[in-house]
Amino acid sequence: MVGHLNLILRLVIWFLLTADFSVANIIIGVSIALLLPGRHKGPEALKDWLRVLGEIVVALPQAYIEAFEIIIRPHKYEDITMERVKPRRTPGLIFLDIFLITFTPKTIVLKYHEEGWYEVHRVRRRKIVGQKEG
């Protein structure tokens, strides 16, 4: 089941990159998705995939709310934080985590560190106590 989710994720990325749903492009996309090497270090947990997909559904309204907040009340402060990657994350789940963080208007992942950290840039409405100006 999880192998199917990896295949679907690869195809979705392919179609987002190409924006072409012709028969030839579908054949090319399926071929590439099948030929890309998979991870053989252990089975991915289906519950992790379902949890991330549920978080994506929740992120959609959150993104609209944050966009309106930025329009209505300016966010003048920003900071960069390091967030720990959840344990046992496969490359597909790491991609979805980065997508989730970057999808909302107030946050963006600047870098993924192989040691298991995301470098996240955030905009905030208020200054955090102890944060340096500028």
Rank of each mutant, 00 (worst) to 15 (best):
K132Q: 14
V85Y: 00
I8H: 10
L110S: 00
E44A: 15
H4E: 07
I94V: 12
A19F: 08
V58E: 12
I8S: 09
L34G: 11
V109A: 09
G3V: 04
V30I: 14
L16Q: 10
F103M: 06
F103E: 02
L46C: 12
E66V: 03
P43I: 15
F95E: 00
L16K: 07
Y118C: 00
Y64E: 08
E115N: 10
T90C: 04
R125F: 05
L60D: 00
I94C: 02
V52E: 14
R10F: 09
E115Y: 01
R10H: 10
V57K: 14
V23A: 14
I128G: 07
N6V: 11
A19H: 14
K86G: 02
V120T: 05
W117K: 06
I56N: 08
R124P: 00
L96I: 07
L60R: 07
H113T: 02
S22P: 08
V109F: 01
R73H: 04
A19G: 13
G92A: 13
K76A: 08
E44I: 13
I94Y: 00
V12K: 13
W14H: 15
L96Q: 04
I65R: 15
G92K: 03
R122Y: 08
L35A: 15
L34W: 13
I98Y: 01
R84V: 10
G92S: 12
T90E: 04
I28T: 13
G38T: 14
L110K: 01
